[in-house]
Design a protein around this nucleic acid. Structure first.
Lengths: 117, 117
DNA sequence: CAAATGGTTGAGCATTTGTTCAACTATTTT
DNA sequence: AAAATAGTTGAACAAATGCTCAACCATTTG
């Protein structure tokens, strides 16, 4: 009958939907989760994160390594900072970036495991 | 001097870049990694995956639960299938989807840990 | 076999995203 | 204090993304 009065369709298995709804996180948490994983969802950014898992690096080196401008790297690093994925220390003009915590390496490791199945 | 003859800049710390380069994965692997994590990088898709971590679900229920059309869900599920993140079983007209392996739950768990710091 | 229902597919569209460019700040060097 | 260099920022733009719509396939039911 009606397909998308609001935007979806009828529930077939009420109990299942109810069970799942009970275990659901908040809308905000899903947004935060998505924002976090999005940081790993771009080839040059995941490459950047993987590089930092090997050694701290400055913006110039990262730009050369990744083959993009310092500007692009700086923009990426800003997003990564906002997600608490990287931290930095300043030494003169040079800013060294490194991973903020173990989660990054763990996520990378599991991701690598998955794609190599 | 020149800023972006090709597109980047000069290397400052050759040794670091060399060390990182040695440990680097292949370009294809970074693309695959990004593609994998991208699946978790959208609020409704990560919500979908989290729902499936609670219970297998059919497309209709998922659509109702997520508040999007069956079509949208089906499109998402196709991407998730291509990444080996979900599997399905058919029962009459109804297709039940569930998580393909433990990696999904593990990644979700670590992600949740991270955002709750 | 016709109608109904669950699911898939492709086109189209609005939004988001990753990059570059240009202009700027900050720190060092001369 | 001027020049050079590392990094940041905002605007602009092309490419990618997630959704809906409409049409279709597949399976069940009358």
């Amino acid at each position: 009958m009606r397909e998308s009065t609001t935007c979806s369709c009828e529930v077939i298995h009420d109990e299942i939907v109810e069970t799942v709804t009970k275990k659901a996180l908040s809308a905000e948490q899903y947004v935060d989760l998505a924002t976090l994983f999005k940081m790993f969802g771009d080839p040059s950014r995941v490459r950047l994160l993987h590089a930092l898992s090997v050694h701290e690096m400055c913006v110039c080196d990262l730009a050369a390594y990744l083959g993009i401008t310092k500007s692009a790297v700086s923009h990426q690093l800003k997003s990564l900072r906002l997600c608490n994925l990287v931290k930095y220390r300043k030494e003169g003009q040079v800013v060294f970036y490194s991973l903020a915590d173990d989660h990054v390496e763990t996520l990378l490791a599991i991701g690598i495991e998955h794609i190599e199945e």
